[in-house]
Write a protein that binds this DNA or RNA. Structure first.
Lengths: 204, 204
DNA sequence: GTCTATATTCCGATAGAC
DNA sequence: GTCTATCGGAATATAGAC
């Protein structure tokens, strides 16, 4: 018996794992369809091409992830007692929750690869579909850090993005100790990230 | 007429550019030798395989880069008036200087790709050959930040590495303005990086 | 929708002439 | 050391039977 889910869904799940492990070029459709337990031709039938499959791998996660981020942000944006840490939490926690559900944790690696790829097509796709999320978060940071000039704020957010991508994709040197549960480790990661990023954003 | 340098050197230079642009899998030996103006068979003759060529691309830059970092560190390590910013400067400035010389700036992208690849062979190579550099810098940070526990310090250095890799490989959203010279832009990058990282490392 | 079979292109690597 | 020619295989993609 094949794993659960439709053919499309099984292809997407297998693609996420293999793209994280081997990259977009490194993972072939043959490996991918074999892992999904579907026929080689199924990818082109359901998605049209490998490139379109890549887009759908992003869409599957990012639609929910960024909606969750914006929902969390809307609950605190503009409030008088909101802190920089709160805004960072709204951005980071949805990604953390994602990593609890099965292979979701690997998606952050896929995202990190997309950053490193510098592929214009992919970057335009991400910017066109999810750019408004970053803009809303930036606006809230600007409200909370009025002493920073626009260029200065952009610099700092850019550096936070780097630290965040690095940490969330788990390619740091810190390895989870075997006596720490996966959940506790993720929570610890979030706390370190938030405090570090808040310090970097807020320093005089 | 072919570009300057020996065949080996021209292959290495072309490989650096293409690996940065297209990745290790994405750049083929055919594109690479065509760009270098050498015969397809030259790569296997001079390097043995594509994988060994990748190693040499790293060696060509990292030997000098890390020697320069350690030299800068040795001039300040252990001194009573050394600051966290000084140590960060010792680490970052050599990478900055590298980017002044021709295609050297692209090497930081190659390095960022290596991080994203998660390839064990490559990671072991980097750790075995250049791990001592990170250890010496970590020791100096530990001296300057005695209030931090070892795990806490490792966390923060890891996050700094993420921000640094992100910024130095230039895939941030901040684009250089046309009225700012490349040199001035790099200097500005370094200043932002150092202050940001120092804040993230030192916060209570 | 799923399959087999195949078209076409490209890959890394090497043999052997010069 | 450099070249041509090619091997053996794997890549994406598609045509057409079921």
């Amino acid at each position: 018996m094949n794993s659960s889910g439709s053919t499309k869904e099984r292809i997407l799940a297998a693609a996420e794992v293999l793209f994280a492990q081997r990259g977009f070029d490194g993972a072939s459709l043959r490996q991918l369809t074999a892992a999904a337990g579907v026929n080689l031709a199924a990818v082109n039938y359901h998605f049209g091409s490998k490139e379109k499959l890549v887009e759908q791998v992003f869409r599957r996660r990012l639609d929910a992830l960024n909606a969750s981020r914006l929902a969390a942000l809307s609950r605190i944006a503009g409030a008088p007692d909101t802190s920089v840490e709160d805004v960072l939490d709204a951005y980071i926690r949805p990604a953390l929750d994602l990593s609890h559900d099965g292979s979701g944790s690997l998606f952050m690696r896929v995202l990190a690869r997309a950053f490193a790829e510098h592929d214009d097509t992919l970057r335009q796709f991400l910017s066109a579909n999810y750019g408004h999320v970053m803009r809303q978060f930036t606006a809230e940071f600007a409200r909370l850090l009025p002493q920073l000039s626009k260029p200065e704020l952009y610099w700092r957010i850019d550096l936070v993005t780097g630290a965040l991508t690095h940490a969330m994709s788990g390619f740091g040197m810190i390895q989870r100790k075997s006596d720490v549960s996966e959940h506790a480790h993720r929570e610890q990661t979030a706390q370190h990230l938030i405090r570090f990023a808040a310090a970097g954003l807020s320093h005089p």
